[in-house]
Simulated scan of single mutants.
Amino acid sequence: MTDSWPTWPQWTEADLDAVRAVLDSGRWNGVDAPAVTAFEQRWAASTGARHALCVANGTDALLLGLRALGIGPGDEVIVPAYTFLATATAVALAGATPVFADIDPDTYCLDPAAVDAAVTPRTAAVIVVHLGGHPADLDAIGALCRRRALALVEDAAHAHGARHRDRPVGALADLGSWSFQGSKNLTAGEGGALTTNDDALAERIRSLRNQGRVTGGAWYEHHVLGWNSRMTAMQAALLGVGLDRLPDQVRAREAAAGYLDEQLSGMVTPQGRAGWATVHAHHLYLFRYDRGPVGEFVTALRGLGVPAVPGYPVPLYRQPLFADRYATVHLPETERACRETVWLPHELLLAPLERIADVVSAVEKAHQ
């Protein structure tokens, strides 16, 4: 296997044209820059949300969302521990306490029963992560949050284009949080967004991301403690062109992942697919390998030309940042996922199916 795999990010002349248009406009920044508001309108429509609000990055999106929900000191927020660090650090940055709950072993998303068991009188919210692009169980966790009067946030950083029961993720909870960082399926290098159907939440986020200014207020008039979390117009222009390509890319990833699921079954255990996952975004193609050390298996795959990596190596509660405070936490499915999971990047799934077959051949050889 000597041919290279698809690279990421990808761009065309359309991206250059979009950036040139922003350069020519002279409107390079500002929450009301035409390129920013145009992308917000398109992203809201794409996700089925009434509001989309662009921000500086995905971590800010989570933090702004929590702040807009009024979450802070004294509150607890339930999060998975098999996720990127920002899901938990955004909670800590808001002044609240992350509480880690275990994942479902098939989907890698939060286990509703584990969430239910983690609720205390101090719990204010739950953040579900659509891990790898697979929608979390919003039916069960949504019902739990309504019953217990908890806010629900979708961390959709992996899930551009994913659908839960044929409805786009990102507008199925109080808030949806998005990242457009360089590795993401829709990217401008950096950037983020929040989506919501709640008018009041949207207005609070508009203020918080723009130094506490309010709609209709004067430029030097600040009402709340906010900060600068504004997206540039050039980023928004790139995202608009990327959004044009996204539907075809989602279909290509679904086809490639379906092929791998079928061909690899029996050698490894691909990430499960729940019935509600109408569309899986496949930011990652995940599978379990439990017949030896994952590191050695990944090294063998890479030697055969497949750009595999181990998954998250430790749960978040074993990160140095959290380890002392959470020394007694033990989540068996999360820890098993850290030992056994292999990732393939989403751009690999954009290769022709005949090239994807090389992954199957490599797994067969590395598996022997």
Rank of each mutant, 00 (worst) to 15 (best):
A151H: 14
D3R: 12
E154N: 07
S4G: 15
A202K: 04
V363Y: 09
H223E: 04
L93E: 15
H222S: 10
H160Y: 04
D137A: 14
H282M: 10
L349I: 05
T299F: 09
L63D: 06
L144N: 12
K184D: 02
Y259D: 04
H51N: 08
A233W: 01
F287N: 12
C338L: 13
A200V: 13
R273K: 15
W8G: 08
A277W: 09
P121R: 03
L286V: 14
P352V: 09
G30Q: 07
A162V: 04
E333G: 03
P332G: 08
A125W: 11
L63F: 11
A92G: 09
G142D: 11
A81H: 08
V298K: 11
V55T: 12
A68T: 03
L64A: 08
G311P: 03
Y312A: 15
R230H: 01
V55P: 00
Q271V: 14
L172R: 11
W43I: 03
L286Y: 15
L69A: 14
G275W: 10
G275Q: 13
L353N: 11
V91R: 12
R50D: 09
V214M: 04
T299D: 15
S177H: 05
Q368V: 06
L344C: 14
D17P: 02
G74Y: 13
E354N: 15
R251W: 00
V214Q: 07
L150A: 04
T187E: 03
E335V: 13
P345E: 07
A35H: 00
R245Q: 02
R146F: 05
R206D: 03
H164M: 08
G272T: 03
Y259C: 00
K184I: 00
I78W: 10
G176K: 05
A88M: 04
A33Y: 06
F180H: 06
F297P: 11
L16Q: 06
P98L: 08
V314W: 07
G161L: 00
G182R: 15
A44L: 10
G305W: 10
V250L: 08
R167I: 00
L225R: 08
G65C: 11
A56Y: 00
G217F: 03
L344K: 10
E296Q: 15
E354I: 03
R206Q: 09
